[in-house]
Amino acid sequence: MEKYKNVKESRVSITELMLPSHSNFGGKVHGGYILNLMDQIAFACASKHSQQYCVTASVNRVNFLNPIEVGELVTLKASINYTGRTSMVVGVRVESENITTGKKKHCNSSYFTMVAKGDDGKNVPVPGLIISDDQGVRRFARSKYRKLEAQERDTKFESKTFNPQAYIKELENENIKIDLK
């Protein structure tokens, strides 16, 4: 295994025509279908970087910014944004293109945490990342801090240590009726 790999070495992109079978009841491409494609490309990117089988550990926020129409081409692009010891954060960007007008739309972006697995199913180390531009530094730093914030949030709201009384006043103006007994 190489000790470090350049971001460019594991970039992956796919383009697929959106068919009627991909649509939801509203006539747009189903978000679940797009999530499936996003997971597949994150797997491909992480596996290419680590040269191992990878599994999805988490998905960080998927905002559907623009609908995708049947008949449009959808392009998904993935690259490694962050490497830990056995995990990688894969940035995935989804764009659609109207094939008759050429108009492109950014549909969503998300971040998949993928973990490399060995033949025995245990986590295995992954190559580090060679970053050669400011954008790469920004992506790596953002992923690092997103990970730290998630750990802090999970700890703060852990059921064993959570104190509801500390939040009741803060929740008064929300769409909630608190009836603790």
Rank of each mutant, 00 (worst) to 15 (best):
M1C: 10
E2L: 11
E2I: 13
K3E: 14
Y4V: 10
K5P: 00
K5E: 03
N6C: 09
E9D: 12
V12I: 13
S13V: 08
T15A: 13
T15H: 10
E16L: 15
L17E: 08
M18K: 02
M18T: 13
L19F: 14
L19G: 02
P20T: 07
S23E: 02
G26F: 12
V29P: 00
V29M: 02
V29Y: 00
G31C: 05
Y33M: 14
L35I: 07
L35F: 12
L37G: 03
D39G: 10
Q40I: 09
I41H: 00
F43N: 04
A44L: 11
C45I: 06
C45Y: 00
S47C: 07
S50Y: 00
Q51W: 04
Q52A: 11
C54R: 01
T56Q: 07
T56D: 06
A57S: 11
S58G: 06
V59K: 04
N60C: 05
R61C: 07
V62P: 01
N63P: 02
P67N: 05
E72T: 02
L76Y: 00
K77G: 04
A78K: 03
G84S: 09
T86C: 11
S87T: 12
S87G: 09
S87E: 05
M88I: 08
V89Y: 08
V89D: 08
V90A: 02
V90W: 01
G91F: 06
R93Q: 15
R93H: 08
N98E: 07
I99N: 09
I99K: 11
T100A: 08
T101N: 14
T101E: 06
K105V: 06
H106L: 15
C107S: 04
S110G: 14
T113S: 10
M114E: 04
V115C: 08
A116D: 02
K117Y: 10
D120P: 13
N123T: 14
V124R: 04
V124S: 08
P125C: 05
V126F: 04
P127K: 01
G128W: 02
G128N: 09
L129K: 06
L129N: 08
L129Q: 06
S132L: 07
S132T: 15
D133Y: 04
D133H: 05
D134F: 06
R138A: 13
F140D: 10
A141N: 12
R142W: 12
Y145P: 05
L148M: 09
L148H: 03
E149C: 10
A150T: 12
Q151W: 04
T155C: 12
T155Q: 14
F157S: 04
F162D: 01
F162Y: 11
N163A: 08
A166K: 15
K169W: 07
E172A: 10
N175I: 15
I176D: 01
D179H: 11
K181D: 09
K181R: 11
